[in-house]
């Protein structure tokens, strides 16, 4: 850890020295690191954004995947990079609020990053298999209460939003000790997690609507809850607020762009402009909406506040349920 701090300090010093010399950012191509693999929700969203973004930016944008450890490998590589604006990160709910809230030994914290904007919000939907006799969230919680251990939920791994979401929903609807009374089944990736519910390995799943939309449209999965303030097109399920739990609205997926701590104000301002133009691109918005995302650009302050709020909510829940990852 000490070495990391030194590195960070040297990096910050480097930024101070390089600061005034920065002619006109960007002078060379900018690398945008996606901390998840190709084909995932983050990857597709960011690559779709990189289309219009690449046209606006005066230098090419290089989008690269750096996969591993639930987004930690890619995130830490950006946290340790020079804060010169040439290495940026596509931050995601899993890597930047859930994982930091759950894992104390993570090699980075939220403070190591400066957000230039959150551009995509993914509503969260909970669903069960169509063949299951569970018709509502009430049925689900009752089943878990009556026969502890028979209800399970799938996730894309420890420290993913899916894990937290499952526990949070059960907890909100009155299941005590959701970790003991329901079983969390971690799988490798979001696609596998949805398939597990389809195949009957797990009882339910709470994840981004985009990951479930085709299964719901095909009548393979039955949605039982959405966490948006209003009902969601294509998902015939009540909202959390309708069921008396508006606090679950905190449970949303998001993607944003962040740089390492010490990012010059000038770079941040440039990115804000670029994001503003790129997210206004018609085809981009159309593509993302088709996939079930909501395109909403937050400015840096709003993003930071939104992320901090979500982090605090998650952290409280983690402490309450003792979900902390040790070691």
């Amino acid at each position: 850890m000490k070495a990391l701090k030194y590195l960070a300090a040297i990096g910050a010093l480097g930024a101070l020295l390089a600061g005034p010399a920065l002619a006109e950012y960007p002078e060379r191509p900018v690398t945008l690191v996606i901390p998840y693999g190709p084909g995932g929700a983050t990857d597709i969203g960011v690559r779709a954004l990189s289309g219009p973004l690449g046209k606006i930016m005066p230098q090419p944008l290089l989008v690269v995947n750096r996969t591993g450890a639930g987004g930690a490998t890619g995130s830490v590589s950006v946290a340790n990079a020079d804060p010169d604006g040439y290495t940026m990160l596509a931050a995601r709910v899993g890597s930047h609020t859930v994982n930091p809230a759950m894992k104390a030994t993570l090699p980075y914290t939220l403070d190591d990053f400066v957000f230039v904007g959150v551009f995509e919000i993914n509503p969260v939907v909970c669903a069960v298999s169509e063949s299951s006799d569970i018709k509502s969230i009430e049925d689900l919680v009752n089943k878990a209460k009556e026969n502890p251990g028979t209800v399970s939920f799938s996730s894309s791994g420890v420290g993913s939003m899916l894990q937290l979401a499952g526990a949070m929903v059960l907890n909100a609807f009155g299941l005590e000790d959701p970790l003991d009374n329901a079983t969390h089944i971690p799988l490798k990736g979001g696609g596998e997690a949805a398939t597990a519910v389809l195949a009957g390995t797990a009882t339910f799943i709470c994840t981004n609507s985009s990951a479930l939309s085709s299964f719901v449209a095909n009548g393979q999965l039955r949605p039982i809850l959405v966490t948006t303030p209003e009902r969601l097109d294509g998902f015939d399920a009540p909202t959390a607020a309708e069921l008396g739990h508006p606090e679950l609205e905190q449970l949303v997926g998001w993607t944003g762009i962040a740089g390492p701590k010490g990012l010059p104000e000038e770079v941040s301002a440039k990115w804000r402009d670029w994001l503003k133009q790129a997210t206004a691109d018609k085809t981009f918005v159309e593509q993302m909406t088709k996939r079930g995302s909501v395109i909403r650009l937050m400015d840096p302050e709003e993003s930071q506040e939104f992320i901090n709020n979500q982090y605090e909510t998650f952290k409280k829940l983690v402490d309450e349920l003792d979900m902390r990852i040790e070691g």
Partner: peptide, 13 residues
């Protein structure tokens, strides 16, 4: 699958 969905097609039965 991502490519299907971007074109508004949802693979499945």
């Amino acid at each position: 699958i991502g490519a299907f969905m971007i074109h508004g097609l949802q693979p499945g039965p």
